[in-house]
Design a protein around this nucleic acid. Structure first.
Lengths: 232, 232
DNA sequence: GAAGACGCTAATGTATACAAAAATGCGCAC
DNA sequence: GTGCGCATTTTTGTATACATTAGCGTCTTC
């Protein structure tokens, strides 16, 4: 698990370092440090130290930190210093509750606007997910990547930039925590099945159906996560 | 209307300039320019020009602009330049829909956690609102200020920093647009009455009731706004 | 020995100077 | 006369130097 987290981090950093802007790289790399657990909750995020790590000046690091602060990856001490944020169980539950509402809303909007092309993409994407989880040894990395893509496709089909930015932070945060827990294959298969239901709802352009399936999908994920945390 | 908007702007700017940080002042002032309509949609937001206006250097202006961009007050051209964002009718409807969901959720959480002290504050606040709207010539500025405070109290009673930051942008945006329209006294009275219902729901610690009243409150506001826009 | 104040240190906030990229306008060729 | 391409100019992105403020340890005094 430590290995998968750290490889995920270096992969993200490598992808970002390929000719992206300095602030973008700083953002990706610092977030990676937090998500991989290299910087545990409460750790101070000092601008100069981070600038050295990323290899840029303080200016882009500052921009990255402001963004991370807005997305609740970092929080401020009374004196105005930034530290890695600490999410407790209530926070996780809140994140999932907000995701359920907002992604449910996104699904409803998407159902209204879904084009045949977008629907085909979703089907293709979910086929990949099913392939990844059907094996006795599920391909977790593949599942995470394609699952992310599936939800992003719906988000983009919903056609609301506001929703997209609001959800961006929430999805990341929740996925991270999940990455840290062990997956139960049955959960993965169930997830793919729910995606299938979503596709049906989209095909029928049925807003309420889509919203309900998405809400259920995410609330089930919450409980799967909580069960995994408890038994860990 | 133009007068009220511009006085609101200068008041905000003055409040901010009183010993606040440069980035904070820049944020408040630039947002003021956008909200007052001094910078109409599509107007380029050039860093150096804004730095001159605010009287600080480009660095804090940049931070302010990133924040405004994250809150959808500004959007980027393909080339990466910032311009004042243009909200169409769909955007406004989307903002209200998101507000209805998120503030409904906040109200439900608040109902669960409401303390007697917080409840008393809400009652006091709504009394001020009722006083402001009871007169033949309602005190609009007072209403807006107290109404804002009422909703902020609920938000803080909900105890979720995530909700608070998510809603901050949405509330501002919607209020601005409303400021631009003429208020119908009947709407204001209705609004105060709905606040009374909310207080009852909070007193009973009834989550579902609170959520329903809040959702209805905001959706009515949407339609009041749309009617006002049409007949304007 | 404990408590408070003072001064030092380290971190953030701000300004400016420099580099890179993008828009625009001009000129040239077709 | 129009369209394309290059050069100029404007604007944003990044680095660094400076100012300010919060933290923190020590020293003094009661």
């Amino acid at each position: 698990m430590a290995a998968s987290a750290s490889s995920a981090r270096s992969a993200a950093a490598a992808a970002a370092s390929a000719s992206a802007s300095a602030s973008e790289r700083a953002y990706a790399e610092i977030r990676g440090l937090i998500l991989a657990g290299d910087a545990s909750p409460g750790t101070p995020l000092r601008e100069e130290a981070l600038a050295d790590i990323v290899g840029v000046s303080r200016t882009p690091v500052r921009e990255a930190l402001r963004r991370l602060e807005a997305e609740h990856y970092a929080s401020r001490t009374p004196g105005g210093r930034l530290v890695v944020a600490n999410w407790d169980n209530d926070d996780v539950a809140e994140i999932f509750a907000l995701r359920a509402m907002l992604e449910g809303h996104a699904a409803a909007r998407a159902a209204r606007r879904m084009t045949p092309g977008q629907l085909a993409e979703l089907k293709f994407c979910n086929a990949a997910i099913e392939a990844a989880v059907a094996q006795p040894q599920p391909d977790i990395a593949r599942f995470l990547a394609e699952n992310r893509r599936f939800h992003d496709l719906i988000l983009s089909a919903s056609g609301s930039a506001r929703l997209a930015t609001m959800l961006a932070g929430l999805v990341e945060q929740a996925i991270v925590r999940r990455t840290a827990t062990r997956y139960d294959q049955a959960d993965l298969v169930r997830s793919a099945h729910e995606h299938g239901q979503l596709i049906q709802a989209f095909a029928a352009h049925d807003e309420d159906w889509a919203r309900a399936v998405m809400t259920a999908h995410i609330r089930r994920a919450l409980h799967a996560f909580q069960d995994a945390s408890r038994s860990k």
